[in-house]
């Protein structure tokens, strides 16, 4: 498969006084055409910041401090705003966590869905209208003509997220970035939206980068996954390997802290302590203070990247043992 997006040693920082606090450090990954790539981690690990930086939608004073984001031969980290405009929507679409805040409350849903077409291609108003209704049907919105004339507050949470997905898809992007797209939804609606994203990906041949805190969502949706902790990717692997043979102690700990049955049958092992403050990260491994495998070398320098035989790799001096044979998903 062709590499569609390459994030190369990306660093993101936010100025504080005369210093810069690093929110994301040295993040590298590649998304291939048509694949579904997950980024998982807990609050503050930098996962949302990373995907917002890809299409340069960082909020506040956060800035890309180093590295490159290559898409279609263009380095988005360096691109001018005009170049970004043509890539946003037509090259890369984005879906956010909360569809209510992502939608404009005073414009009809139909107008917001069709808006993207004004900036991409030379379609007549009638053609734009037809494409809008088609996009609404594609995302499973019932009665498109009626919903097109509705305002966001008149729709349910699930319908709003479908509308937000229609907005992201209207200009036929090759990559969809989704930041916690189902976190605000009920579980039965979440199942519908995840099914929709998978269907759209296979029908449109689109790649998906899905950011989530939910390991279940990743397991059911993604081909490969990166685990982030304290601003870095600590492990990357094909989806089955990460669940069957996690190597980084943080990944192991994360998997041990999700409920999978009764406490009697499957006791949870919480991770003691807290991630470090980004302004005061230790010089060694950021996870060392909470890590059961910690040794003295962990505190001296941050571990480099160790590639794994089955694809992916991890950043740890003392990883969990590799199983003899790892089936690749």
């Amino acid at each position: 498969m062709v590499d569609l997006l390459t994030v190369d040693h990306l660093g993101i920082g936010i100025p504080r006084g005369s210093n810069t606090v690093a929110l994301v450090e040295d993040v590298s990954f590649t998304v291939r055409a048509g694949e579904s790539y997950g980024i998982v981690g807990e609050s503050g690990c930098g996962k949302s910041t990373t995907i917002r930086a890809i299409i340069r939608l960082l909020t506040g004073k956060a800035r890309i401090t180093r590295g490159a984001v290559r898409f279609d031969g263009v380095d988005l980290a360096q691109a001018k705003e005009s170049a970004l405009q043509s890539i946003r929507g037509a090259g890369i679409g984005m879906v956010f966590q909360d569809p209510l805040t992502a939608l404009n409350p005073v414009l009809t849903v139909g107008r917001q869905i069709a808006e993207g077409l004004r900036y991409h291609g030379q379609l007549s108003a009638a053609d734009r209208h037809a494409r809008m209704l088609e996009a609404m049907r594609l995302v499973g919105l019932p009665d498109p003509a009626r919903i097109a004339a509705s305002y966001p507050h008149e729709l349910s949470g699930g319908q709003r997220q479908r509308a937000a997905i229609a907005i992201a898809l209207i200009a036929s992007p090759r990559l969809l970035l989704a930041d916690e797209p189902t976190t605000a939804l009920d579980v039965t609606i979440q199942a519908q939206i995840l099914r929709l994203l998978s269907d759209l990906r296979s029908r449109l041949g689109m790649a998906l980068v899905l950011v989530t805190h939910d390991l279940g969502v990743v397991a059911q949706t993604c081909d490969r996954v990166a685990v982030m902790y304290s601003g870095r990717i600590v492990e990357e692997a094909p989806i089955r390997r990460i669940f069957e043979n996690p190597r980084h102690p943080y990944t192991v700990a994360l998997l041990n802290s999700i409920p999978r049955g009764s406490r009697a049958g499957h006791p949870l092992h919480p991770i003691a302590g807290m991630p470090p403050d980004p302004a005061h990260r230790p010089s060694g491994c950021s996870f060392a203070a909470r890590c059961p495998n910690r040794q003295t070398d962990c505190e001296a320098v941050a571990p480099g990247w160790t590639p794994d035989a089955g694809g992916g790799g991890f950043a740890c001096f003392h990883p969990a043992r590799a199983h003899a044979e790892v089936p690749h998903g």
Partner: peptide
């Protein structure tokens, strides 16, 4: 039954439930 089938299971070997997700809201 539908609620339980909707939970995304943290196990990639379990395919997404065959049961069609509960339609509507």
């Amino acid at each position: 039954r539908a609620l339980l089938a909707s939970i995304p299971r943290a196990d990639p070997t379990l395919a997404q439930s065959d049961e069609t997700p509960l339609a509507g809201e």
